[in-house]
Simulated assay, not measured.
Amino acid sequence: MYSKQKLDNVKSINILLKSISYFDYNAIELKGSDDLKKRLYMHFPIVIMDANMVDLLYVEELRVDELKHLLSEGKFHYNSMIFINSIHQTPEKQELWRKLVALPMITVSIDMFHCGVLFIRKEQVKEHFTIRI
């Protein structure tokens, strides 16, 4: 995350691209932007979009009931990441973020101000990090 390499001018997208590279994610689902899909393919041409089970889910907003539905579908595995853009953009998005972090099934959450990531790792103790990117 802290590497000097800049893959995109938008901070949250830069973090997303660095995460994909660092974790070597291949199966990705993007909910929202076709423009982002194009940028993603520029950096990672062999990425698989919208697979049954994903390494990374990118969303602009995620409600608790939507997350529970995705979990019941078996959409995630042990190392899957849920990437939520602009978690502090509005008071409503901040409240959604707090609700997601509080869920018992979320074991690791990272608030990077411009975006946030969630992990569901059953063996891990619940931890929340706030880092400055």
Rank of each mutant, 00 (worst) to 15 (best):
M1K: 10
Y2R: 13
S3F: 14
S3L: 13
Q5A: 13
Q5G: 10
Q5H: 10
K6Q: 12
K6E: 08
D8Q: 12
N9K: 14
V10D: 11
V10G: 04
S12P: 00
S12G: 03
S12V: 02
I13D: 07
I13C: 05
I13R: 12
I15F: 08
I20D: 01
I20G: 00
I20S: 01
Y22T: 10
Y25R: 01
Y25G: 02
N26Y: 05
N26S: 08
E29K: 15
L30F: 07
K31L: 13
S33L: 03
D34T: 12
L36T: 05
K37N: 06
K37E: 09
K37Y: 04
K38H: 04
R39Y: 09
L40D: 01
F44I: 03
F44E: 03
P45H: 00
I46N: 12
V47W: 01
M49F: 06
M49Y: 04
D50P: 01
D50Y: 01
N52A: 13
D55S: 04
D55A: 00
D55C: 00
L56R: 00
L57V: 09
Y58T: 05
V59C: 10
V59A: 08
E60R: 11
E61C: 11
L62D: 06
R63G: 13
R63C: 09
V64T: 07
V64E: 09
D65I: 13
L67C: 08
K68D: 11
K68H: 10
L70M: 15
L70P: 11
L70N: 14
L71T: 03
L71H: 06
S72T: 11
S72W: 04
E73R: 11
E73W: 04
K75C: 06
K75F: 05
F76K: 02
F76C: 01
H77G: 01
Y78S: 12
S80E: 00
I82Y: 03
F83Y: 06
I84F: 08
I84H: 07
I87G: 02
I87W: 00
Q89K: 13
E92N: 14
K93W: 10
K93D: 13
L96S: 13
L96A: 14
L96E: 14
W97P: 04
K99W: 12
L100M: 03
L100V: 00
V101I: 13
V101A: 15
A102L: 06
L103T: 08
P104I: 02
P104N: 06
M105I: 08
T107K: 05
I110P: 00
I110L: 01
D111P: 09
M112I: 08
M112G: 09
F113M: 15
F113A: 15
F113D: 15
C115T: 07
C115V: 08
G116D: 06
F119Y: 12
F119M: 10
R121K: 15
K122I: 03
K122F: 04
E123Y: 05
Q124G: 04
Q124L: 10
K126S: 02
E127H: 09
H128Q: 03
H128K: 04
H128G: 00
F129H: 12
F129W: 14
F129E: 08
T130C: 13
R132C: 08
I133C: 14
